[in-house]
Simulated assay, not measured.
Amino acid sequence: MKHVLALAVLAASAATGAHAQDFGFAGREFSVDLGVGVDVGPDYPGSDDAEAGPWLIWRNAGFGPRGSNLREGFAISPSFGTVGERDASDSDDLAGMKDIDRAYELGLRVSYGAGPVTAFGSVRKGFDGHEGLTGEVGARYRTELSDRVTLWSGLSFGYGDGDYNATYFGVTPEEAIGGRPAYDIGGGFNKASITFEAQYALTENTSLLGEIEYGKLIGDAADSPVVQDEYQPAIKFGVVRKFSFGF
């Protein structure tokens, strides 16, 4: 009987170890950088004026070895966004166009990390200003300059469904005037962006974060008669804190 119990204990221990290794949790942790900041960018898609707005930061979510900054495998996290209001009285180019309220966007982001490279895709539903779907797909490359400084360079493509693109780039027959014909636009990619991001660690878990985005409207969105500037640069600053959960 003692031999049977001993064998059972050994088998259970081996199974537990194999189970942890099979799922890759042994010695690993899930971490994410959360924070807030300021986003200075176009008032609305296609605008040639800038405004400051809130930046809700959810960055670098994923699994990795404990104590490592590399996040590997799949991760799902929330995705937030806002789009500034568009007031026809602010520009002669918008005379006769309907006003658009500030939009709030909520959705999900899926990412996959492999070493220094992370691919991602997001989708968000709009409320108030627009009722459509929008998001991005792209990839980022991570470079560790020192124990405190980390850089990311990235390329992404923004898209919108028919409702989103029609809200910001379309012109209805009622809004058409001389020099601004009616413009019907469907869903598709509307923006290409190159981003450069830097993070400076103040402490082990708290960092300063900055991002420069060089964006350009593309496709049918760039040809819209209401677009005042195809180039859509933005700059962001914020503070983030790292939260980790070990296994």
Rank of each mutant, 00 (worst) to 15 (best):
G53Q: 03
N69Q: 04
R66F: 00
Y44D: 01
F74T: 05
S68K: 06
L56D: 01
G67S: 10
P65I: 07
D48C: 10
L70M: 12
P65N: 06
A52E: 15
R71V: 07
F74V: 05
A50R: 13
R59V: 03
G81A: 15
L56A: 12
S47I: 06
G67C: 10
E72H: 13
G81D: 03
A75V: 04
P45A: 13
S77V: 13
P45I: 14
G64K: 07
G46S: 14
S47Y: 04
N69F: 04
G67V: 13
W58V: 14
A61H: 08
E85R: 14
S68G: 06
S47R: 06
A75K: 04
G62P: 06
E85P: 03
G53P: 00
N60C: 07
G64N: 01
G53L: 05
T82N: 04
G46R: 11
W55F: 06
F74C: 02
A61L: 08
G62H: 08
S47M: 05
G46T: 10
S79G: 07
D48Y: 11
D48W: 13
R71F: 13
N60P: 08
A52T: 10
N69R: 08
Y44M: 13
E85L: 12
E51C: 02
L56T: 05
P65G: 05
T82V: 14
A75M: 03
D49W: 13
S79C: 07
I57M: 11
N60I: 07
G53M: 04
F63I: 00
I76F: 09
A52L: 03
L70Q: 09
